[in-house]
Amino acid sequence: MLEVRGLQARYGAIEALRGIDLDVKAGEIVTLIGANGAGKSTLLMTLCGQPRASGGSVRFEGREITRLPTFEIMRLGIAQSPEGRRVFPRMTVLENLKLGAIVADPAHYAADLDRVLTLFPRLAERRDQRGGTLSGGEQQMLAIGRALMSRPRLLLLDEPSLGLAPLLVKQIFATVREINENEGVTVFLVEQNAFHALRLAHRGYVMVNGRITLSGPGSELLANPEVRSAYLEGA
């Protein structure tokens, strides 16, 4: 579904991605783990054309999307819940969700809203609250829910567990699995929480300094001593 070949990206003189090769197949949950500053968020953003790739290519469902403008990429069936959630602070939960569906067929809106609010009952309770006043976990739910409103086939999640209590992390991850299994949405998940992410994912990649250093099935990576010492210490 998603084929990344030799992808490079830079911020001025800083090379953030130094040739990434990576595949996500339809129906999978694939996770990407790595230390702070490894370039994980940059990869997700580059897939969406922001920053633009300085080399390499990205194909989505067989189609070359490397040079498309961001807004067109996001209309092909890809949605992202960006790092830091980025919910619209002065808008209500309902308005945030409505914006998620802004490029979708309006005929689906009611059904999609039902679906998201069933997935996250907490959002239904708080539907008229302003995004900026939600708790961190609620904002995360809103960010994911908003991304789902466009009926994506590929969902990009950037650190959905950031700053959440263990119980809520479990809940969010369970929801991600539910989205994947029941609705057939392919998920590409960037995580610091390597333990949970690798247990959830079918396959995983490890990124160090803008390069992929390891890849394999989630359970295999979990057992890998390198991964254990670098990312699972104390877990």
Partner: peptide, 24 residues
């Protein structure tokens, strides 16, 4: 309408806007 919603969204967060497929 979508255009007006996009205006307000743009005021709040440009990056989030783009990630939702809004043409800035």
């Amino acid at each position: 309408l979508p255009v007006g919603r996009a205006w307000e969204a743009l005021r709040e967060d440009e990056i989030a806007c783009q990630s939702l497929g809004i043409n800035r």
